[in-house]
Design a protein around this nucleic acid. Structure first.
Lengths: 337, 337
DNA sequence: GCCTTAACCGCAAACGTTTGCGGTGTCGTT
DNA sequence: AACGACACCGCAAACGTTTGCGGTTAAGGC
């Protein structure tokens, strides 16, 4: 029974005037006398009147709410994206509904459905690792729901995007390793149905190529978790592969590899240099500290939200889709010196 | 213009029947003929009809949405709480609106207001570090809005709570340090207007007391961030205090201290044992690995949400407030052996 | 004394649903 | 032939707002 909250009608009844008058008085409409306005404002204050946002949403066909679909909140990168989103949305008077896909396709589809049902004014989405079917996303387009994709985008889909230059960053990472004398560089890649994983791998390959280093498929794994990293690092050792560098698709993977190697007596960075990706809280607290790429999650969140709000507020006016590419800084630390 | 979404009226117009009939047909009301039902369901499917949740909220005076106020999402503990909340809410068909207070009082007050305006069915809240005035929270109570406090609760406020036994956990942490031979144990405490900080400090003091170790106020600091930890760790060294253990109010603080000491050549755990709190992703990746207390964020989120849903669904029926106290496991690792 | 003009205010419709109550039409029964 | 029963459907009100379009007063001008 939280319908105990006071409505305009309650104010009207109490003051013996009409609801319309109360509504107008509350927004200082010139048609209303100063006296009435004062009375209304006073009572509203006294009874702690809060306009019913639900009723407003229905009336204005505008919910002032944006939906966010995020793979997993517990990652530093994603939670900082949310922070960015939250801050910008808050300043613009928008609410944020968060849905986690938990990296599951089914759940992502359900999330989209929920957000559409909630009539959010727009959606920010980073697709799950499982997602290879994009029907639900095309559906968004067909219904004219403003949507901005951040970080993990859909190949070929015309839409607003904000991403970092994964290809270039990975290229620079790998080049950095090569420049410091490494010749056998392993790559722990992400799932290749994600564009970012592809880009990161391709940037890695380009740098190898430029340096005249042949691609060695024994040094490339699909390993994007802490556990998988330990597994494959172990395999590298057991199979006696010669390698002197690892470029991992994210920090946790890099750290998994690092720990495994260290336990087997391999020195970082002397024997093997390691670089992660998506500079989070971890990179500063390993020993040695982890070279990584700052993915600028917070900034990505703010920019994506600004793009979305712009499109929401443009309303009728159409304009071409935009793609913003953020620079990713390579932050060199002890693990690759 | 996402009002492009199809409504019951659209279906009605298309089928030349009334909106009421469509509504009933959609929910297989017995008054409607099989034939009409089939036609309605078919068209609804074809046009991808999604019931307008906003209209429903207004009508049923129930939004099927819960609000969450959280200090800062980017902390592992809090983001795992959110995960727990999200999962339970999702299964129950509830949406989640997230608001970050960013540890600011003003923002927290605004968050409460927003959530009330959005007519959420209930609120989960962990108060900010700044919050010492509880008017906005009492306001929730006065308006009969179901509220569950998690982790950081309000002293003396009658409400549902879910917390961990900070006092006991801290007591055990400190006892563990004492049992392993430490005699001069420093405490890096959190802001004392938070109950959890008080409890943690008191648990620490109790263990000292029991062991006949006098409290040394030179060894107690209010330091709950990475930077402050480095500062005070440095001060401990510079002032040549003799200490052989540190119990920090959270992991990041512990790590800040650990790194500072290590840089000054102090060996962990040989010279100084260190224990953190709120076992996150960090504790496994430091060197040595950090002894900490598992705060069970995910579980806290699920339990808090279950309590909230229970109260929401109880609706009219009132029942006494509950407080659930979760056990916190002490996880002993290299930093305190 | 009548008309204009302004100053205030209320009616009613609308946003998309649900739902009580009634209405229509078609049977079968007597 | 009249009536009840049943199956099926629509009207209208309601949830809390906003807003166009009037309507009612009172004052002022002629």
């Amino acid at each position: 029974m939280n319908s105990g909250l006071v409505t305009i009608k309650d104010l009207a009844r109490e003051l013996k005037i009409s609801a319309s008058t109360v509504s107008r008085a509350l927004k200082n409409h010139p048609d209303i006398s100063e006296e009435t306005k004062r009375a209304v404002h006073e009572l509203a204050e006294k009874l702690n009147y809060q306009p019913n946002a639900v009723a407003l949403s229905l009336k204005q066909r505008r919910s002032n709410t944006i939906g966010v679909i995020i793979p997993e909140i517990v990652h530093y990168f994603f939670s900082s994206v949310i922070s960015g989103i939250e801050d910008v949305a808050y300043d613009a008077g928008f609410n944020v509904i968060i849905c986690q896909s938990n990296e599951r396709y089914e759940r992502e589809v359900a999330n989209v459905k929920t957000l559409m049902a909630s009539r959010v004014d727009g959606i920010l989405i980073s697709i799950s690792k499982e997602t290879t079917d994009y029907k639900h996303l095309y559906n968004l387009r067909n219904n004219n729901i403003p949507t901005v994709f951040y970080d993990r985008i859909v190949p070929g889909l015309q839409a607003d995007h904000v991403i970092i230059d994964d290809f270039d960053a990975s290229y620079r990472v790998t080049k950095h390793l090569i420049d410091s004398g490494r010749k056998h560089i392993a790559h722990f890649a992400g799932p290749l149905n994600l564009l970012i994983s592809q880009h990161r791998k391709n940037g890695y390959l380009k740098a190898l190529n430029e340096a005249g280093i042949p691609e060695d498929r024994h040094l490339i794994f699909e390993a994007d978790t802490f556990e998988k990293a330990r597994l494959f690092a172990m395999r590298l050792i057991n199979e006696k592969r010669s390698f002197d560098g690892i470029f991992a698709v994210n920090d946790l993977t890099a750290i998994g590899a690092m720990q495994t190697l260290q336990k087997r007596g391999i020195k970082i960075p002397e024997d093997v240099a390691i670089v992660g990706f998506s500079d989070g809280r971890f990179s500063g607290i390993t020993d040695p500290r982890l070279t990584s790429v700052d993915q600028h999650g917070y900034e990505m969140g703010t920019i994506a939200t600004e793009m979305l709000l712009k499109r929401i507020l443009a309303d009728d006016k159409e304009y071409p889709f935009e793609t913003k590419v953020l620079n990713a800084n390579l932050i060199i630390r002890g693990s690759s010196l």
